[in-house]
């Protein structure tokens, strides 16, 4: 069974985005064929950041994702928003940056986001931790585990591509002072590398 992908257009025509729509459909259906039994619907938003009128699509996506607030990113080439019960996903491609990637990078980025959909799972311990500590304190741990799992899958299936751009500390992190006598220094460093790690 092939996965249905519903295209959302904002400031581009179907013709403008057809290459990417075909590419994503091909990757989802060939490399992630199991997804169709896991994700009920995938919406695909393809836009250019410079002149997107978000209001035109925001309501549709927010309703689709059960009220999740949508703010498209100016520099992230690809983003996935995901909601459970029933599992649905909205994949966003920002052509302003995405089309600057090389072919293999585009494929790798799409596969990375598809792997997030494929590996999504829930945990009772996580639910209790969220109740005890709150989302703000726990979300970093969730993110790092998700990224670990996704990268492990990518390494297993597309190792050579992964090795061209392996997960790394971002450049700023590598230049942080490595002798940190007090935790206060780390707090100061936090602002320099709030994104901390490239994913």
């Amino acid at each position: 069974m092939s996965q249905e992908i519903h295209l959302i257009l904002s400031n581009l025509t179907t013709e403008d985005v057809s290459t990417y729509y075909v590419l994503i459909g091909k990757i989802i259906n060939e490399d992630f064929s199991v997804l169709s039994s896991k994700i009920s619907t995938i919406k695909l938003l393809i836009f250019r950041f410079e002149n997107i009128v978000l209001e035109n699509v925001k309501k549709e996506i927010e309703e689709f994702l059960g009220g999740k607030v949508v703010n498209v990113s100016d520099n992230r080439p690809i983003t996935i928003r995901f909601t459970a019960n029933p599992p649905k996903a909205c994949l966003e491609i920002n052509l302003s940056t995405f089309e600057k990637l090389e072919d293999w990078e585009q494929r790798l980025a799409i596969r990375h986001e598809c792997a997030h959909m494929l590996l999504y799972q829930q945990s009772k311990t996580l639910v209790s931790l969220l109740a005890k500590y709150g989302e703000e304190k726990i979300k970093g741990f969730i993110r790092f585990y998700d990224e670990y799992e996704v990268h492990a899958l990518i390494i297993e299936r597309w190792m050579d591509d992964w090795l061209k751009n392996p997960l790394d500390l971002i450049a700023q992190c590598q230049t942080l002072p490595l002798s940190l006598p007090r935790l206060g220094n780390l707090e100061a460093a936090k602002n320099q590398c709030c994104l901390r790690f490239k994913t």
């Binding site: 970093g140 790092f144 670990y148 492990a152 190792m159 935790l183 780390l186 707090e187 790690f197």
Partner: peptide, 19 residues
């Protein structure tokens, strides 16, 4: 923040080990 970064580094090293 420190614990999260340590956790991330541990998982990063596990990925490297899998190569």
């Amino acid at each position: 923040f420190e614990i999260q970064n340590i956790v991330h580094l541990i998982t990063l090293l596990k990925l490297y080990e899998s190569i």
